[in-house]
């Protein structure tokens, strides 16, 4: 855990303490459990988004994919009688194909990620609405899938299934991001695609993989969301969820320029966002202000982070300048330089 992540954790605990002091219901097991369930749901898609953001890209179609996968999945298992494991595999394949399409358009046709995924956002939402004729997809009365429900909305020893899923996925993805060759390549491509290419990295493949990973995790979270809400209105389900994911990543120390951020950071970002949502509810702030609170906190957080970075830079420069005074002119190091 780096300094940035630690700072975020302290902030989460501090906000939590304040909310708990103002409204003790914050610490009720039911509240903690609900909030952590939401952390699990949003966390899955946020990790996917994080992989894309590290490469310097962005994935805007997440919310629409959550709606599309939601209606397809529910329709398949509830009305078409497809066994749910089969439906799940089909959805995952859909995710792979969508991610592959985005990645290929971005790397081979050199389209901008924002444009490609914005089109995805519009297209998948449209397909979702068309597929159900804008009707809400849901389960019939008394219809149940005990195992699926236990795995998605159930609890194990009091811990929501989504939290367990997030823990498993986060652990795997932490290894991938921070310990695997692929993870190192991701950062390298995000930091300086050209230098990565000049080092013999097939950067196109790395970028394509990041979109595939993002979509697969999005599909996974879409299944959880579908089972959690149980009825999916294709026009509104999942709206803005891509922005939650991006916001979580930014809060967690990711740079939209790429090459920066950690897995723990994005998880903490999700936790903080959900904590803020919860805070709005518990402190009696009108829920219409929900987004405004979130936006305000992100803005303040990012500004502080930026200023702190500049402050450190200036301090380093000053130190270097002092060091310069005492050394020979010709062999002197520039600000922040080590000889």
């Amino acid at each position: 855990m780096n300094k940035k992540d630690f700072g975020l954790l302290v902030l989460i605990l501090a906000v939590g303490a304040v909310v708990a002091a103002l409204n003790p219901r914050f610490l009720l097991p039911i509240n903690i459990s609900n909030t952590s369930n939401l952390v699990g749901l949003f966390g899955l898609s946020a990790i996917g988004q994080a992989f894309v953001i590290i490469t310097g890209g962005i994935e805007l179609s997440v919310g629409s994919m959550i709606a599309l996968v939601g209606v397809l999945f529910v329709d398949f298992i509830a009305t078409r009688g497809v066994p749910w494991p089969v439906a799940l595999v089909l959805m995952l394949i859909l995710g792979v194909l969508v991610g592959l399409a985005h990645g290929l358009l971005i790397t081979k046709l050199k389209l901008q990620p924002f444009v490609v995924t914005l089109c995805g956002l519009l297209i998948y939402r449209g397909i979702a609405r068309f597929y159900t004729q804008d009707a809400t997809a849901g389960f019939g009365f008394g219809q149940d899938f005990p195992l699926l429900e236990q795995l998605t909305t159930g609890k194990f020893y009091g811990i929501p299934a989504s939290v367990i899923a997030l823990t498993v996925v986060a652990t795997i993805m932490w290894v991938v991001l921070h310990r695997s060759v692929f993870g190192r390549y991701l950062y390298a491509v995000g930091k300086n695609e050209e230098a990565a290419r000049y080092s013999g990295i097939r950067s196109d493949r790395i970028v394509i993989w990041s979109y595939v990973i993002c979509q697969v995790l999005t599909v996974l979270s879409a299944i959880f969301f579908a089972m959690y809400t149980r009825s999916i209105a294709p026009a509104s389900h999942g709206n803005f969820y891509e922005l939650y994911a991006i916001a979580a990543a930014v809060l967690g120390g990711f740079s939209l320029k790429g090459g920066e951020g950690s897995l723990i950071g994005v998880i903490l970002g999700v936790v903080l966002l959900q904590e803020l949502q919860n805070l709005v509810n518990l402190l009696g702030i009108p829920s219409s202000l929900n987004f405004a609170v979130m936006g305000g906190v992100i803005l303040v957080g990012v500004t502080l982070d930026q200023q702190w970075g500049q402050f450190r830079e200036r301090r380093l420069t000053k130190q270097a300048a002092q060091a310069m005074g005492s050394t020979d002119r010709n062999s002197v190091a520039a600000p922040g330089e080590v000889r």
């Binding site: 190192r184 000049y198 990295i201």
Partner: peptide, 21 residues
């Protein structure tokens, strides 16, 4: 600076990058 190095990355990661496997 633009093509030879990942300036923000540590020396070790720059050196091992092409042969990480």
């Amino acid at each position: 600076k633009a093509k030879g190095l990942l300036l923000d990355m540590p020396i070790v990661e720059n050196i091992t990058l092409p042969d990480l496997k």
